[in-house]
Design a protein around this nucleic acid. Structure first.
Lengths: 126, 126
DNA sequence: GTCGTTGTCAACCATGTGGTTGAGTAAACG
DNA sequence: CGTTTACTCAACCACATGGTTGACAACGAC
């Protein structure tokens, strides 16, 4: 949990930048060198290198060596971590939502006349 | 795309903070007031209020009004946006990976003897 | 060995972020 | 009315982030 917490922060943080998401998108189609990745943007190579470092530290990317070149490879494994986290809380929220729907439906069916006393806000506050 | 790009940045950015993820986790079990959300952490109420603003601007949360209280409600809809983005590139990366696996498997099956000439580095370099 | 290519590291700068405190707003309570 | 509760807004501060430029390292080519 503790370690994963840090990992999640890094991954989410890395993907919070549109340029970095763009690079991930590019890398999903195949490995690329730093220069190739930098080409579409009008920022310096150093800036791109920094972005790659962020992606690497988030575990989204690996860099190897090929002469002067540093081919970059997308490592999609950490995606699972995010997906699991997201799914967990999405499901919970949706279950809650459906329970609320049921409660409201039951209330409407049972006692439409007495339902507007003081009660239904508390269901949300709890 | 343009609007979604900004939205994605905000959502990923919002979830890049462990405190905010924690709040989302808490809110998945039910709505809560700002004070209730602040209780577990030893930061000021103002800091929590700021976090909620970030979550709200990311579309993860909605705040309503109940007398002095501002009940916070988790809005899990934006999760879809993230999930779709993630799945898109994960799938591409995995497809690529599987194609590579097939190529390597075919190479091993076909000509194991001649395979160690110069070729299979591409697997590691990629 | 020297040169060009490819990329990293270091220093710096502007802006953003998470935290603080202090003041102010909105509504219930007395 | 004034007080209390629950919260937001504004100003400030330390540090992180994304960008820059300049120097330099690793390697292939000449």
């Amino acid at each position: 949990m503790v370690d994963n917490d840090d990992r999640l922060s890094r991954v989410f943080g890395a993907l919070a930048d549109p340029t970095r998401r763009d690079m991930v998108a590019r890398l999903a189609t195949g490995d690329a060198t730093v220069g190739e990745l930098a080409a579409p943007y009008d920022v310096s190579l150093q800036a791109v290198s920094k972005h790659l470092k962020v992606l690497e530290e988030a575990g989204l990317v690996r860099r190897s060596r090929d002469a002067q070149r540093r081919p970059v490879h997308l490592d999609a494994e950490v995606f699972d971590l995010m997906t699991k986290w997201i799914e967990k809380y999405r499901q919970r929220a949706e279950e809650r939502y459906q329970r609320l729907d049921q409660v409201l439906a039951r209330m409407q069916g049972k006692d439409l006349a007495t339902a507007n006393d003081d009660d239904q806000q508390r269901g949300a506050a709890g």
